[in-house]
Computed example of a mutant assay.
Amino acid sequence: MTRLLHLQLLPLLSGVQNFSLFLLDGLPENQFDIYVASVPGGDLVDAVKARGYHYLPLKHMKRPIAIDDTLALMELYSLMKRYNFDIVHTNSSKPGFLGRLAASFSHIPLILYTAHGTSFHDDQPLWQQKIYRQLEKWANSWGDYVVFVNNCDRLKYLEMGLVPPSKAITIYNAIPYEQVEKFTKIAQKRTCNPYKREFVIGSTLRFSRQKNVINLITAACQACKNEPKLKFIILGEGEHWNICRTIVHSYGLEERIILPGWDVNIAQWLALFDAFILYSRWEAQPFSVIEAMHSGLPVIVSDIPSLREMITEECGWIVPLDNQPALIQCLIEVAQHPEIAFEKGVIANKRIKEISDYDTMVKSYLELYQKVM
Rank of each mutant, 00 (worst) to 15 (best):
L73K: 05
P320F: 15
S78Y: 15
P95E: 08
Q179S: 04
H107K: 15
C244Q: 06
S38T: 13
K196A: 12
L5W: 06
I243V: 14
P40Y: 01
E367F: 08
T218R: 12
E29G: 09
V39K: 12
L73D: 03
V180L: 09
P260H: 11
E354K: 15
A220P: 05
E136N: 09
L162C: 05
Y77H: 14
I87F: 00
E198W: 14
E136Q: 05
Q128D: 09
P64I: 08
D33S: 14
L368A: 03
Y55E: 03
D144I: 00
L230R: 02
E75Q: 06
I290Q: 04
G99S: 04
C244F: 03
R308C: 08
E181F: 09
W269N: 14
V362T: 00
K231L: 10
L27R: 00
E314L: 13
L162I: 02
S302M: 12
E291S: 11
D144W: 03
N150R: 07
R190P: 06
P64M: 06
F97V: 15
I233C: 02
I332E: 08
S78L: 14
G238R: 05
G52V: 05
L23S: 00
L5D: 01
Q124I: 07
T114C: 05
C152T: 13
I234K: 01
S306V: 03
L135G: 13
R206Y: 10
I311H: 09
I352K: 04
K229V: 13
F276K: 03
A103T: 05
R245K: 13
N226H: 15
F32R: 03
T191N: 02
Y113V: 03
N215F: 12
N226V: 11
E237N: 12
H121K: 05
E237R: 11
Y35M: 02
E313C: 08
I233L: 09
V334W: 06
N91P: 07
E343A: 15
N150D: 11
Q210Y: 11
C244E: 07
H107I: 12
L158I: 08
S93E: 08
W282Q: 14
E237A: 13
G345E: 02
L162A: 07
L155M: 10
T191W: 10
T118C: 09
H240K: 15
R82V: 13
W317V: 08
S20K: 10
Y83F: 06
L110A: 01
A271N: 12
E237D: 15
R197L: 13
G42D: 06
N212P: 01
L216V: 03
P305C: 12
L4H: 00
N151C: 04
S302R: 09
A220W: 10
F342A: 13
R51A: 01
S302H: 12
A37M: 01
S38V: 05
D274T: 00
K189P: 05
P95F: 04
Y358G: 01
K225F: 12
I328L: 05
L110M: 03
